[in-house]
């Protein structure tokens, strides 16, 4: 935005004079710092769930109510979408706009599939009587898993806006930085899901 068009096109992405910090590097580091704050957010929610998992108020827990087939499908959808968002970044570094957008769209569709399965899971749980108000166990469960789901939802919206921007302005160092940061965010969400699967689901049904 602040860049003049001449600057945007003449500036070669891969060369910077020694001593000058690439602004995209600073943005990338800033995003890492954001991810760390998100790690702390999830740490508190994980700690809450682990501490409250005994507080069932006599109601059934996930051990009886989880549908593991759906959860396993969610896991592989999100893992594959993490992989395809990496392929989008690879295509971007080769300046292949069309493959890049294709991989981003695939990533978004896999993410949407994940969200759909998660929503179906939540609806089924509510039908069984497990809601936010049922017990400490289910309150902390829905808060933890729901916060991750909200992150995925925001990620999909963010990705759509980046695609629109690239279609309008093309690939430059600015939009490239955005795709890089988005893929970092998406990999991070998959990393959080690994621990959700492990601690919330697998340790519950074992």
């Amino acid at each position: 935005m602040a860049q003049s068009p001449a600057h945007g096109t003449d500036h070669h992405d891969h060369h910077h004079a020694a001593g000058h910090h690439d602004p995209q590097d600073i943005k990338l580091l800033g995003f890492w710092i954001f991810l760390v704050t998100d790690v702390i957010l999830f740490a508190t929610l994980f700690a809450t769930f682990i501490v409250l998992r005994g507080g069932t108020d006599g109601f059934e827990t996930g051990a009886e109510l989880f549908n593991m087939t759906g959860v396993i499908a969610e896991t592989f959808l999100l893992l594959t979408s993490s992989f395809t968002s990496g392929l989008a970044v690879l295509a971007m570094h080769q300046n292949k706009v069309k493959p890049m957008i294709t991989w981003l769209v695939v990533t978004g569709l896999l993410g949407a599939g994940f969200l759909a399965l998660e929503l179906i899971e939540f609806v089924e749980l509510v039908h069984e009587g497990a809601t936010l108000q049922t017990s400490a166990y289910w309150s902390s469960f829905f808060t933890l898993v729901g916060t991750h789901g909200v992150h995925v939802t925001i990620g999909i919206g963010w990705m759509i806006s980046i695609i629109i921007q690239i279609l309008r302005r093309g690939l430059n160092s600015d939009t490239k930085g955005k795709v890089t940061v988005f893929s970092l965010y998406w990999h991070f969400l998959d990393a959080v899901w690994i621990f959700l699967l492990s601690i919330v689901y697998l340790m519950e049904v074992m």
Binding site: L29, W32, I33, L35, V36, T37, V39, I40, F42, A43, T44, F46, A47, I50
Partner: peptide
């Protein structure tokens, strides 16, 4: 930064 974050994570959990 990540190592620092994981330190806080482990402390909290």
């Amino acid at each position: 930064t990540l190592v620092f974050g994981i330190l806080i994570l482990l402390t909290i959990v």
